[in-house]
Nucleic acid binder design. Sequence first.
DNA 1: CGTTAGGTTGAAAGGTCTCAAAGCTGGTGG
DNA 2: CCACCAGCTTTGAGACCTTTCAACCTAACG
Lengths: 256, 256
Amino acid sequence: MENTTPQSIALHSSAPVNLSEIRAHCSSCSLHQLCLPMGLAETDMDKLDKIIGRRRRVARDSALYRMDDPFTNLYAIRFGHFKTYQINSGGQQHITGFQMAGELLGMDAISTERHHCDAIALEDSEVCEIPFSGLEGLFGEIPNLLSHFHRIMSREITREQNVMLLLGSMRADQRFAAFLVNLSSRYATRGYSSTRFQLRMSREEIGNYLGLTIESVSRLLSKFKKLDLLKVDHREIELLQLPRLKALAAGTESCG
Amino acid sequence: MENTTPQSIALHSSAPVNLSEIRAHCSSCSLHQLCLPMGLAETDMDKLDKIIGRRRRVARDSALYRMDDPFTNLYAIRFGHFKTYQINSGGQQHITGFQMAGELLGMDAISTERHHCDAIALEDSEVCEIPFSGLEGLFGEIPNLLSHFHRIMSREITREQNVMLLLGSMRADQRFAAFLVNLSSRYATRGYSSTRFQLRMSREEIGNYLGLTIESVSRLLSKFKKLDLLKVDHREIELLQLPRLKALAAGTESCG
DNA sequence: CGTTAGGTTGAAAGGTCTCAAAGCTGGTGG
DNA sequence: CCACCAGCTTTGAGACCTTTCAACCTAACG
């Protein structure tokens, strides 16, 4: 049996993180049309490569960073999934997002130079460390990089506004449908199936994110199954009627 | 009676916006330690002045921009208050934020070059138009401006995460307490009283923002009044026990 | 002084949560 | 190979919180 896949390396090592000191190369990365270097010329991508730190493995359930950690790097996800959550003063956590390959983590830390949330790997994952000071140094040289960085931050703002919309004005079934539709489209842009995928998070994590209890999520899954909107087997999901799910999320259609 | 105050100009003119063509000057603006030019040297502030467009009046209830409007400017609020809201596919609106003097509007439009929400003045207000292309041109020249801009965008991300926390995991009374405490601290940083201020938004708008009905907001006000946490007279509010309100928002204390 | 918009209050309904129990699955050890 | 356990999930019943629906109030305004 081969022992060289990322997962196996992480699993067989004693240390859960920082396993890989391999330098990252944007130009050879399959995600570069989705990630920070999007649209960059080859020469500019090389410059970006020079400032990018090592690739870093993060084993399942371990932290990429924790709240209040000093901010030095942004992280681009190479593969795997993460969740980010805040802990309120009552001690309970609330998940603010699930992130997947090609997405950038840590932007909320720029303002105070400390991370505002915990970022935990949902499965064995790998990220590129992007030292922010190095990135700032490149902005003057590569205007395209700067403007794309602004677009990424702006997109994060609109993403969060959509979640506010979801939490502030949708019923439980709408929220859950919107959640599934959102995952679906993100997998689609990554070249995966928009109708069959694996949930990387537990029911509890889904509920926490959507402002629902685990029982409500479970009931909604059962209800959607009964309505033939989807099939579930553990975390394996197949969306049978994506259009109806979209209509449900939009509030156009109701599931009495 | 004088007819030269910002309000009266706006009120007596036929056109609701674009009344003022006076060029803005950051250095003479009382908000420059709160706003985009924060921490800038005098000479850099002058450069910023050169690219900043006119000041623009926005009469109460009229739009600074609308969803899908093409994005050309960011806006810094000089005085007055705004609300921003999204409209979901069902046609109902959801308020994503209330903005006040010194805060920046429009950052969510950078990613798609179209505005993602409506921005409506809650009272007669004035903003500085900041052409984004001009701002981008300055970033290379003034690194401090760029890094402060990044801090502002990052702060917007954390602000929204806090709202997600509020909507996703707080009870109605906690939400309302958190809302009041938030306003209180923002007025405090602007040099106003942290305990006495005027609500610029209707009960309906508060409820919409907090994911509650107008009736719930009204009941919470009555409840808080009964508990001697505050006094209300229409939109005039006095917080009588800010510490207890903070404890309520934090979930440390409960109001049975 | 009637009208209107915004706000308050009450009673009933509804949705989601809480609590509880049971089912399923994968891992462990005999 | 099977029994057993722990963790996650599902399902049910009742409670609770917030909403809905309705009536009433108040201030502003023509």
